[in-house]
C-alpha cells in the first residue's frame, strides 16, 4: 500500500487546485446565468415588474426539466452540446461546461425563491419614485435580497463541489478523482479519509465565509 505522502502530497495539492478551478469557474458562469434566469423567473411572473407569460413558462419548464436529472447522467447527456462548444467531451473544461449549465438552472430556482421574499412595498416605493424596471431590479431588488442570496450561493457552492467530484468519470481531475483513483481503487482508506477531510475543510470555510458575508449584508 502506498502511504508515501511525499509523492501523494503534490498530487493532492494539484487536485485541490483543480477542484477550486472547476468550482470557481462554474460558480462564476453558472452563478451569473442563474442570477439572470432567477431574476427573470421572478420578474416575469404574473403581477410582477416584467410580467410575461411566455418567458416565465419557458424558463419554469426548463428549470423543472433540467434540475432533477442526476448530474452523472447530465454530463453525458449534454455531450453533443459540450463537443460543439468546448471541442471535447472529456477533461476538466468539459465538466465545467456541464456543471455551469446545471448550476445555472439550480441557481435560477434559488434566486427566484429568495427574491419572492422581498417586500413588494419597497419595489412599489421605488416605482413611485420614477425608477425604471431595470434600475429597480439592479438597485433595489437584488440589494434587498442580498443576504439570503449570499446564503443561497453558499449552498450552491457546496453543491458544485459535490458535482465536481464526478469529473473523474469523463477524464477530469480534482479531489473526487483523487479519492477514487488513489484511494478507492487502490484500497487505500487513508487517502480517501484525508480527501474527505480536505473537502470538509473547504466546505466549512465556504460556509463560514458565506455566513459572515450574509451577516454583513443584513444590516441588522
Amino acid at each position: 500500500m502506498n502511504r508515501d505522502w511525499s509523492t501523494l502530497g503534490p498530487i493532492l495539492l494539484e487536485s485541490v487546485r483543480e477542484t477550486l478551478y472547476m468550482v470557481s469557474i462554474t460558480i462564476g458562469v453558472g452563478g451569473f446565468l442563474g442570477l439572470v434566469f432567477g431574476v427573470l423567473l421572478y420578474a416575469t411572473r404574473k403581477g410582477n415588474l416584467l410580467q410575461n407569460a411566455v418567458v416565465f413558462t419557458v424558463l419554469n419548464v426548463a428549470v423543472n426539466i433540467v434540475r432533477p436529472i442526476p448530474f452523472i447522467i447530465f454530463i453525458t447527456a449534454v455531450g453533443p452540446l459540450t463537443l460543439a462548444t468546448i471541442g471535447t467531451t472529456i477533461g476538466n473544461n468539459a465538466v465545467i461546461f456541464a456543471m455551469s449549465i446545471m448550476a445555472a438552472f439550480v441557481t435560477a430556482r434559488i434566486v427566484e425563491q429568495n427574491l419572492v421574499a422581498t417586500d413588494p412595498g419597497v419595489i412599489e416605493a421605488a416605482r413611485a419614485m420614477g425608477a425604471s424596471r431595470l434600475r429597480i431590479i439592479v438597485t433595489v431588488l437584488i440589494p434587498e435580497a442580498l443576504a439570503p442570496l449570499i446564503l443561497g450561493y453558499t449552498f450552491l457552492l457546496i453543491g458544485i463541489i459535490d458535482m465536481s467530484a464526478l469529473a473523474g468519470y469523463v477524464g477530469g481531475g480534482g479531489l473526487g478523482n483523487f479519492a477514487i483513483v488513489y484511494g478507492y481503487q487502490r484500497f487505500n482508506w487513508e487517502v480517501t479519509f484525508v480527501t474527505v477531510l480536505v473537502i470538509i475543510a473547504i466546505v466549512q470555510l465556504a460556509q463560514l465565509l458565506g455566513n459572515w458575508f450574509a451577516r454583513k449584508a443584513l444590516h441588522r
Binding site: D119, G121, V122, E124, A125, A126, R127, A128, M129, G130, A131, T139, V140, P143, E144, L146, A217, H219, R220
Partner: peptide
C-alpha cells in the same frame, strides 16, 4: 410624472440594504 409626486406608506417601505442617507438619496 411619478418623480414629481412623493409618496409615503404605512409600512414605510424603506430599503433595509441602504442607510438613512442612502434611502433619502435614492430618488
Amino acid at each position: 410624472v411619478r418623480a414629481g409626486i412623493g409618496m409615503i406608506f404605512q409600512q414605510f417601505n424603506l430599503m433595509n440594504s441602504r442607510t438613512v442617507a442612502g434611502n433619502v438619496g435614492y430618488p
